[in-house]
Design a protein around this nucleic acid. Structure first.
Length: 675
DNA sequence: ATTAATCCAGTTTTT
DNA sequence: CTGGATTAAT
C-alpha cells in the first residue's frame, strides 16, 4: 500500500535491491516518503524490524518516520526498528554494553579549560597559543574529521605557525582523554568514537540494512561508523546542495565519492518537487546554479496553482524591518503555524520575537538554550547527577562551589575527601566515612604553614558542633582549615538534603525533594538577590520578586519534564541528548537556517539579508565558504511552499552600522547592480 | 593561592 | 545579559 503512494522514481529507489544505494533527493521531492517506503519494502521482503537501522539528523525526524511506519505496520512492530541520530543510536548501544556518563558539552569544556590553564606556554615566539575554547573546538573538528594522524601533526599541518605549541596541545588532550576515561565521562564525540570502537570488534554485522538520511551532512567520523557497521546494504539519502554543516566536519566529498567507493553502487535521483511553487523553485535554481554542479539537477515543478512571486522588502533600519515583518505576518491571514521566519544568525531572533510580541503574535523558538543554561536548572540537574552517580566529580564541584568561601578548589578537595572516605562512593563518604582515613592529605608546604594547618585540624572537630545537625556534626571534611561558619552551614544543608533523598528515586520525586530542600532554596535566594541588584548596589524588591518567580517557573518546568521519565538515568540523559528537541509554545516559527532543515511552511520570511550577516563574512574567512553560504540560502528558500518574502535593513541604529544588501539578492535577480 | 567583586566586551551554525 | 578578565581581599 505505501509503495503505491510513491511516484515511479521514488518507488524505484524504495525497492532497489540490497547493495549500496545512493538517493539524490532534492528539496521537496518526497524524501521522507521514500525512506518510509523503503522500510516498508524491506519489511515486506523478509526483513524483521531489528535488521534495520535508520540514522537521521535529528531525533524528531526519526520519530516522525517511525510513526509513519507504525501507521502501516503497527506501532509495536515499528518501534523495534533502531532509529535516531548517530549520537542517540551510539548512546543507546553503549548504555547497554558499558558504563558511560554523558555530560553537557559545556561541562567537559570547563574540565578541559581547567587542565589547559595549568600549562605553561613558551611565549617568547610571536605566535600566541590558542585559547582553551578555540583549541577545544579545533580538537572536536579534528575528531570529527577522523584524521589518521595525531592531533599535533594535524594542527601543525593546518596551522604551521602553531607548531611550537603542538606538543603541549597534544599533551593536554591526552590528559583530558585520560580523565574522561577515568570518570567514564563522554561528550558527543566520545559517543561516536566509543560506538565505533565497540562495533568494529563484532564478528557479525548488527544490521542487514542501514538507512542514512541527510547523507550530505555526515562527517568523516560518522562515515567511519557507517563503514564499521559493515552492513550488507546501505540506503543513503541526501542532496549535495543542502550540505550546510561543514563547520562540524561535514564533508561533501563523502556523498560525491559514493559511486567511486562502492563498485556496485546504484544512484537514484528524485526530481519531482511537490513542495514549492514554480516561482520559488526558479529562484532556488537560479541561486544554486552559481555553485559547481556535482550531480545534474533539473527539478520538475509539480505544484499547480496561481501563486505570488517571491517578494523583496527593503527597510531603512533593523528594527523597522522586524516590526514591518511582524505587521506583514499579522495582515497575512495565515494560521501562524504555517509561517516561519528564518535567519542566518540566532542573534536576529530576539529582536524578531520582541516585535512579534508587540503585536501579540505568538511565536515559538527552537530549544530555548536559556532554559538549560540557567544556573538554577543546571544546579538541579547537577544534584540529580550526583545522586545518580555518587562519584560524579563535576556535579559535586559545581554544586559545592555555591557555598560561601567555597570555590572550585576547595570544592574539589571536599569531593576528593568524600571520595576517599567512602572508598569511591561519595555518599558513603558522607554518611559512613571510613574512620581509618584522614579527610585531607597534608600538603607538602613549608613547616611553619604545616604547623598552622595542624592547629586547625585539631580544633576543627569541635568547631561547628553547636549549630549543625547530628548527621553532619564532627564529620571529617570539616577539618578543612578554610571552611568556616557559613561554609559549614551550607555543607550541613547539603548533607541534610542528600540524606533525605526519597527512597524511590524517580526523577519527579527527586526534583520535588530538591525544590523543597533548604539547600536549594537558599541558593535560589542568593541567585535572586544577585539578579535584583541595581547599579547602586541596592536590592530592588520588585526585581527580586520577578527573579524568584522566574526561578520557580523554571523549576516547575523541569518538574513537568521529569514526569515523563521513570528512570533517573534516562531523565538525565534525555536532558542532555534531547535538550533542544522540545520547542516551547505555538505560533510563528522562529528558526535559524540550520534548524529549518527538513521543515516546510506555507509562508517563509528570510530576514537580515545583508552582506556580512548573510552571507556571514566572518565565517567565510574562518572555516566556511561562499558556496556553503549559498547552500544555506538555498535551503532557506526551499522551505517555502507558497509565499517567500525576503528582507533586509540598510542600517542598524543600535550598533550604528550601515549595511549593503546581500550578494544573494543580486544573484537572485531581485536587485540589480547599482540599486 | 583562592575567592569575591567589579567592570567590560560581544554574540555561528548542531548533535 | 553573560562570560572573561582584572583587581581587591582573605
Amino acid at each position: 500500500m505505501p509503495l503505491s503512494n510513491l511516484n515511479q522514481e521514488q518507488a524505484n529507489a524504495a525497492s532497489a535491491p540490497s547493495g549500496h544505494n545512493l538517493i539524490i533527493a532534492s528539496a521537496g521531492t518526497g524524501k521522507t516518503s521514500t525512506i518510509v517506503g523503503r522500510i516498508a519494502h524491506l519489511l515486506r521482503n523478509g526483513f524483521v524490524p531489528s535488521d534495520i537501522l535508520l540514522l537521521t539528523f535529528t531525533n524528531k525526524a526519526s520519530n516522525e518516520m517511525i510513526a509513519r511506519v507504525g501507521k502501516i505496520f503497527g506501532e509495536s512492530l515499528a518501534k523495534n526498528i533502531e532509529a535516531g541520530t548517530f549520537h542517540a543510536v551510539a548512546y543507546r548501544y553503549l548504555q547497554k554494553h558499558s558504563t558511560i556518563h554523558l555530560k553537557q558539552p559545556k561541562e567537559l569544556h570547563i574540565l578541559f579549560k581547567s587542565l589547559y590553564e595549568k600549562r605553561i606556554f613558551n611565549l617568547s615566539g610571536s605566535n600566541a597559543p590558542y585559547s582553551a575554547q578555540y583549541l577545544y573546538d579545533l580538537y572536536s573538528l579534528f575528531v570529527n574529521s577522523a584524521a589518521h594522524c595525531s592531533f599535533g601533526t594535524w594542527i601543525t599541518e593546518k596551522y604551521p605557525q602553531q607548531e611550537s605549541h603542538s606538543a603541549i596541545y597534544e599533551d593536554v588532550i591526552e590528559e583530558f582523554k585520560a580523565l574522561k576515561a577515568l570518570h567514564h565521562y563522554a561528550d558527543y564525540n566520545d559517543l561516536l568514537l566509543l560506538y565505533r570502537q565497540s562495533i568494529e570488534k563484532l564478528e557479525k554485522p548488527l544490521f542487514k540494512e542501514v538507512l542514512c538520511d541527510e547523507y550530505q551532512d555526515t562527517n568523516p567520523l560518522q562515515d567511519s561508523i557507517l563503514d564499521a557497521l559493515h552492513a550488507p546494504s546501505l540506503f543513503c539519502v541526501g542532496d549535495y546542495d543542502q550540505s550546510i554543516y561543514a563547520f562540524n566536519g561535514a564533508d561533501i566529498r563523502i556523498i560525491s565519492n559514493f559511486t567511486n567507493k562502492y563498485a556496485d553502487s546504484q544512484v537514484f535521483t528524485l526530481s519531482k518537487n511537490y513542495r514549492s511553487s514554480a516561482h520559488i523553485l526558479n529562484l532556488a535554481n537560479k541561486i544554486i546554479e552559481k555553485n559547481e554542479r556535482i550531480y545534474p539537477k533539473n527539478l520538475e515543478v509539480i505544484k499547480q496553482g496561481d501563486f505570488s512571486p517571491p517578494k523583496l522588502i527593503q527597510y531603512d533600519e533593523l528594527f523597522l524591518q522586524y516590526q514591518g515583518i511582524a505587521r506583514h505576518i499579522a495582515s497575512s491571514q495565515l494560521p501562524y503555524e504555517e509561517v516561519a521566519i528564518i535567519f542566518r544568525n540566532n542573534s536576529s531572533a530576539d529582536g524578531i520575537e520582541a516585535s512579534l510580541r508587540e503585536l501579540k503574535i505568538p511565536s515559538k523558538r527552537k530549544g530555548s538554550m536559556s532554559f538549560f543554561d540557567a544556573k538554577e536548572v543546571r544546579l538541579m540537574l547537577d544534584i540529580c547527577s550526583l545522586v545518580y552517580n555518587p562519584r560524579d566529580m563535576m556535579a559535586y564541584i559545581h554544586t559545592l562551589s555555591y557555598g560561601k568561601g567555597i570555590g572550585n578548589s576547595i570544592a574539589k578537595e571536599i569531593y576528593e575527601a568524600l571520595f576517599r572516605l567512602g572508598d569511591g562512593d561519595c555518599k558513603k563518604g558522607m554518611f559512613a566515612p571510613n574512620p581509618d582515613i584522614t579527610a585531607y592529605e597534608k600538603k607538602a608546604k613549608n613547616t611553619q604553614l604545616g604547623l598552622f594547618d595542624d592547629f586547625f585540624i585539631l580544633e576543627s572537630q569541635a568547631r561547628f558542633d553547636t549549630f549543625v545537625s547530628d548527621i553532619f556534626a564532627s564529620h571529617p571534611i570539616l577539618a578543612h582549615p578554610k571552611i568556616h561558619k557559613d561554609g559549614a552551614v551550607f555543607l550541613n544543608d547539603f548533607f541534610e538534603m542528600i540524606y533525605h533523598v526519597p527512597s524511590v528515586r524517580s526523577p519527579k520525586n527527586l526534583i520535588t525533594h530538591i525544590m523543597q530542600s533548604s539547600f536549594f532554596k537558599n541558593i535560589c535566594f542568593t541567585l535572586a538577590t544577585q539578579r535584583a541588584r541595581r547599579k547602586d548596589g541596592e536590592v530592588d524588591s520588585q526585581l527580586f520578586e520577578n527573579a524568584q518567580e522566574s526561578i520557580k517557573r523554571k523549576a516547575s518546568l523541569l518538574y513537568d519534564l521529569s514526569r515523563n521519565y521513570d528512570d533517573l538515568g534516562k531523565f538525565l540523559n534525555a536532558m542532555i541528548l534531547g535538550s533542544n528537541e522540545a520547542s516551547e509554545g505555538s505560533g510563528v516559527n522562529l528558526l535559524s537556517v540550520h534548524a529549518s532543515k527538513g521543515l516546510e511552511f506555507k509562508s517563509v520570511y528570510i530576514v537580515d539579508l545583508m552582506d556580512g550577516r548573510f552571507p556571514n563574512r566572518k565565517l567565510i574567512t574562518k572555516s566556511g565558504s561562499l558556496e556553503e553560504e549559498r547552500r544555506l540560502f538555498y535551503v532557506a528558500i526551499t522551505r517555502a511552499k507558497e509565499n517567500l518574502i525576503l528582507s533586509f535593513a540598510s542600517r542598524d541604529m543600535v550598533k550604528n552600522v550601515n549595511y549593503s544588501p546581500s550578494i544573494f539578492l543580486y544573484e537572485s535577480g531581485l536587485l540589480n547592480e547599482g540599486e
